[in-house]
């Protein structure tokens, strides 16, 4: 390692850790300057997290959020070149720090999914007419082998609370009401995607999120249906899978079909 590389490692180490000794050869006269760099580092990361997790901050309060954000920066110092990724893993940090309030991590996961969807790759999804034309005359075997390339902004996160109500109750303009923590019945998830440049989400059955993950991994429609039979029973699984596919196409979530 060159002298410059060693000095940079020592300097960054002193910024990341308030307790770290001053780099070799530094007198105390450099401590005030180092303190400014430490503060800049910490405050820019906390501000980045505040910007990404606005509703999570409103849910837990400013002081608790700042403590959680500082903890996250200490435990998971950023690695990549973009500050946009500073919030990666923050939902897991919230799950650890707010273990008695699982709504916090759930909301943070939703905000992170929406943050990612905001700048995901642009794409032109299949229209219902294009999908219909592409599938016209499909044999049963072709349906079973059908694979979907889903739009890149589509994501799913678990939902045990009514995240639509919670989201609305935490809007910036809604300062009077308490956070709405209505639990959902049954296993559910939130599907997140981008519509007219804005991230949106809806609550769906959890099996729909599972199906989405399976398609992403390359599963065929037949394989997804087979997995659903274990959850819904054979008759319902076929009907629900078909309805889900039609719904996704209508919502612009399918980029193209693969065989």
């Amino acid at each position: 390692m060159t002298d410059l590389a060693q000095r940079q490692v020592a300097f960054l180490g002193a910024i990341l850790d308030d307790e770290a000794p001053l780099p070799s050869g530094w007198g105390d006269e450099r401590a005030p300057g180092l303190a400014i760099y430490r503060n800049n580092y910490r405050s820019s990361l906390v501000e980045a997290l505040r910007s990404t997790f606005e509703r999570t901050e409103r849910l837990v309060g400013e002081d608790a959020f700042r403590r959680a954000a500082a903890h996250h920066c200490i435990m998971h110092p950023p690695v990549g070149w973009t500050l946009d990724l500073a919030g990666a893993g923050f939902a897991e940090t919230c799950a650890e720090l707010f273990a008695r309030d699982p709504d916090v991590a759930e909301l943070a996961a939703l905000e992170w999914a929406m943050h990612e969807a905001f700048t995901a790759r642009n794409t032109q999804p299949l229209t219902t007419a294009e999908f219909g034309a592409a599938c016209a005359g499909f044999t049963e075997r072709q349906w079973e082998g059908l694979k979907l390339k889903l739009v890149p902004d589509l994501r799913h996160v678990p939902a045990t609370y009514d995240l639509v109500r919670l989201w609305t109750s935490l809007s910036a303009s809604n300062t009077e009401t308490e956070p709405d923590l209505t639990p959902l019945e049954g296993a559910r998830c939130a599907l997140v995607w981008r519509e007219d440049e804005r991230p949106v989400f809806v609550i769906r059955p959890a099996w729909e999120g599972t199906a989405l993950a399976s398609f992403r991994k390359g599963a065929s429609f037949g394989e997804v249906c087979a997995a659903l039979i274990g959850t819904l029973g054979e008759e319902a699984a076929i009907a629900e899978a078909g309805a889900m596919l039609a719904r996704w196409v209508g919502e612009g979530l399918v980029e193209r079909l693969d065989q």
Binding site: Q8, V9, L12, I15, L16, S44, P77, P78
Partner: peptide
């Protein structure tokens, strides 16, 4: 300036 080492990024202009 520099902003990072191989391990971490400060996101500050050091």
């Amino acid at each position: 300036c520099w902003t990072r080492t191989s391990a971490h990024n400060s996101h500050d202009l050091l």
